[in-house]
Write a protein that binds this DNA or RNA. Structure first.
Length: 258
DNA sequence: AACCAGGCCAACCGCCCAATT
DNA sequence: CAATTGGGCGGTTGGCCTGGT
């Protein structure tokens, strides 16, 4: 991929590393005016940067809630599990790691975890469920729909997911009590639309899956009640998911992310 | 001390999607 | 409905740093 013209290439705009003065101007402006309107921001703030560059700098470095410092062992482990579930969807993964940015996680994965897992894989001889990286570097999930439900046993081997997972998720909608056998007996597309609506209500996709999963299978500390904020205990429980529970969550998420 | 290779990471890039006109 | 705009995303680059020779 070449570096051709872009918004940052327009005449007179600075590129490259940010100076302390530019940082201060950007932080000061956002503190006074809030985030957003990135394209207009540089002009208003008096910065010779493109809007995208300002947004990136703020999101990845200047935001007050950014957690600096090394990735902890717990975070490391969670990244691996989330990556096996979500693939290279760094923003989603970052969303489950408070204070970490998608760029940071992406860099960490590319420079640390991918190599480590490749070594692990070599040593193990064969890819295992815990460390899912395919031969071509792709993972178990992409944005392309497979059109195949992991809830069905018919033919789901082609989507890279565990096949024939006997999910009995009860009522993933959580409250209506009308879908006891999701996508097994009923119209699969209707069930899918319902599921998506639930996910939209829940705020973010992975959080939605997590909540739905809790409601159906996972006896968690929140007693299955929907929460807007995922508590630290819940992260820890997600981290500790193993065996069949883990495989079922994986299938569940794959089903709703496509 | 000088050079080199490899790793790390901030930043840029093109693409995509949703909202707006 | 099509075109435009704004924002966000994942992939990639390239400069800096560090360790080895």
């Amino acid at each position: 991929m070449g570096r051709t013209s872009s918004c940052c290439s327009k005449g007179g705009l600075h590129k490259g590393p940010w100076t302390a003065r530019e940082d201060a101007i950007l932080v000061n402006y956002i503190q006074q005016n809030g985030e957003g309107h990135w394209r207009a921001l540089p002009k208003k703030a008096g910065l010779l940067r493109c809007g995208k560059s300002c947004r990136l700098r703020w999101m990845n470095y200047l935001r007050p809630d950014i957690k600096r410092g090394n990735i902890t062992a717990d975070e490391d482990d969670l990244i691996i599990k989330l990556h096996s579930l979500l693939g290279n969807r760094w923003s989603l993964i970052a969303g489950r790691l408070p204070g970490r940015t998608d760029n940071e996680i992406k860099n960490y994965w590319n420079s640390h975890l991918s190599k480590r897992l490749a070594i692990t894989k070599d040593n193990a001889g064969e890819t295992k469920k815990e460390n899912i990286i395919t031969e071509n570097g792709e993972t178990s999930n992409t944005r392309k729909p497979t059109g195949v439900s992991p809830f069905c046993n018919d033919d789901n081997s082609s989507n890279g997911m565990a096949s024939g997972v006997p999910l009995s998720l009860g009522n993933p909608g959580g409250g209506e009590g009308e879908s006891d056998q999701l996508a097994v007996n009923g119209d699969e597309e209707i069930q899918k639309v319902k599921g998506r609506e639930e996910l939209e209500e829940s705020g973010d996709i992975f959080g939605g899956c997590e909540v739905l999963y809790k409601e159906s299978l996972w006896n968690c500390s929140t007693n299955g009640e929907r929460t807007d904020e995922i508590e630290d205990d819940s992260y820890q429980q997600l981290l500790n998911l193993q065996g069949e529970d883990y495989i079922q969550l994986e299938s569940f998420i794959d089903y709703f992310l496509i």
